[in-house]
Amino acid sequence: MRKLSLIAASLFSMALLSPALAQESWPNKPIKLVVPYPPGGNVDVAARIIGDKLQERLKQPFIVDNRPGAGGMIAAEFVKKADPDGYTLFVGANGPILFSPTIFKKDSYNWKTDFAPVSTITFAPLVLQVHPSTPYQTVQDLLTEAKKPGNTLTMASPGAGTQNHLASEYLQRSTGSQWITVHYRGNAPATTDLIGGQVDFNFDQMSVAQPFIKDGRTRPIAVTSATRLPQLPNVPTLVEAGFTDFTAETFTGVMAPKQTPTDIVHKLSSEMQSILAEPAIQKRFEELGVQAKGMTPEDFNTFLNKEDQRWIPVIKEANINAN
């Protein structure tokens, strides 16, 4: 009986130690970065850049797994159901992380209860830009027209519930303005119609808008960042235009399944913050029109709560849905 008791105690001790040993040895096999979009987009590129650097540092392969569809919910649900061992991570953006369950009216997941924030990767401010043939030189010019009864202003949206669309809805509600929102199936056709003059203006990520602004095919009249952008030093922010609380950025970030050990989450976050502070990585992302910026898990959680409180009411008040 005494031997059996000793064996049982030993097995119990091993069971207690095994998770700690697993965490100490993490990572000891490939890590999957699940991306909710096809290859080539902003989120995919961010995942591949950060994945390559993490692979160098942690000496294990970081494999990008593209699982597009349903506004990013397919990828998010896959990660939610994965083992919380640090080997399956979600690389998402505003829509898939925060907005899609509300827009699609599905409670498949909730970022607060199903995921552990790890770190942000990039922030992409939006540019409010007009077709050059329009007379609008400032935000006030645009809003003056937008407040006229029966105006025919048109705004190109890459899809209902995107950050671009939500910025437009927010501006309408905060100023009493109104325009026609034309939804497209993605950013490419929306941009094509803006350049062609079929629509008057849009909100677009700086990373997408930059070459068209440079070529004079669109005219920027404001940016949604807190301060002016180095790429557009003469273009005012919406804050400068009088909208004191108007900032809007598309972010990319990494989330882990909720029960992932805290030590793993913090180790991964620390590595990411260090990578994203490297001058070469900062420059590489800047060339793509985005800002590289890592956050601690705690700061990322605070940021997500703030974004949730700002934009979910806009979605509900505007009755934005995927139908």
Rank of each mutant, 00 (worst) to 15 (best):
P61W: 02
L4M: 05
S270R: 07
N66P: 06
A47T: 09
E240F: 07
L232F: 06
Q172K: 14
T138L: 05
G86T: 03
S18G: 08
K283D: 14
I315S: 05
A156D: 14
R173E: 10
T102D: 04
K80A: 09
Y170N: 08
G196V: 02
P19K: 05
P149D: 15
L98V: 11
L238S: 00
E286D: 10
I50K: 00
D308M: 02
V35D: 05
G150E: 00
A241I: 02
H165G: 03
Q205V: 12
D215M: 14
S108I: 13
Y184V: 06
Q163R: 13
P297G: 00
T252D: 01
G95R: 13
S177E: 08
N94E: 10
V239A: 10
P279S: 08
L194H: 11
F201P: 01
H131L: 15
P19D: 11
G161P: 00
G289E: 06
S100Y: 03
I7D: 00
E307N: 00
K81L: 04
F123N: 04
N323Q: 14
E317D: 09
E317A: 10
I7A: 05
Q129G: 11
G40Y: 12
T152P: 01
P125Q: 00
E145W: 01
I213Y: 08
S100L: 01
D107F: 14
T191N: 04
R2M: 01
F62V: 04
Q205N: 05
I264R: 02
Q140Y: 07
K293N: 09
P149W: 15
K105V: 12
P38A: 15
M255F: 11
P117L: 09
G289A: 12
Y87M: 04
N202M: 09
A167K: 01
E271W: 06
K293T: 14
A156Q: 10
Q178K: 12
F303P: 15
D83V: 11
V199L: 15
A93F: 12
F104K: 14
P135G: 04
A280Y: 07
V314Q: 07
V254I: 13
E249T: 02
V254N: 04
L21K: 09
L33I: 09
P101E: 15
